[in-house]
């Protein structure tokens, strides 16, 4: 029962975050790239001021899988690194926290491009 409740929370949180994105696409003249930038920046800022953490506690993957979760990783990473290393942590923390994601995207992107050819819609 707990598990089903957990998945429902994940579904609703993730759904709402994507819904906000769709709202911005349809209701404003913002392009998709701008919207993703807004999401990631908001993710960092909301985490920094302590708003995003409760959302992650409630929605789990529903809050970490959307691109705003990338901002959550960046902000937490930089915070931890500053705690550990002081000033240097400002530069080390963010990218370190999401290094796995970036490296994975580059690797799989490269591999995918090796075995795939663009095709028409």
């Amino acid at each position: 029962m707990d598990m089903i409740l957990e998945y429902i929370c994940v579904f609703i949180t993730g759904g709402i975050i994507c819904l906000i994105g769709q709202f911005l696409i349809d209701k404003t003249k913002l392009t998709a790239a701008r919207i993703l930038v807004i999401f990631v920046v908001m993710g960092v800022i909301l985490t920094a001021i302590g708003v995003y953490e409760p959302i992650v506690k409630f929605g789990k993957a529903g809050a970490t899988v959307p691109i705003s979760g990338f901002g959550y990783l960046l902000a937490n990473g930089v915070k931890e690194a500053v705690d550990e290393m002081g000033f240097l942590g400002i530069f080390v923390g963010g990218v370190k926290a999401c290094s796995a994601g970036i490296a994975a995207a580059i690797t799989f992107g490269f591999l995918a491009s090796l075995c795939s050819k663009p095709t028409i819609k």
């Binding site: 696409i25 998709a32 663009p118 095709t119 028409i120 819609k121």
Partner: peptide
Amino acid sequence: LPLEHGNQ
């Protein structure tokens, strides 16, 4: 955008 990019 690139052909494989998922957009509406």
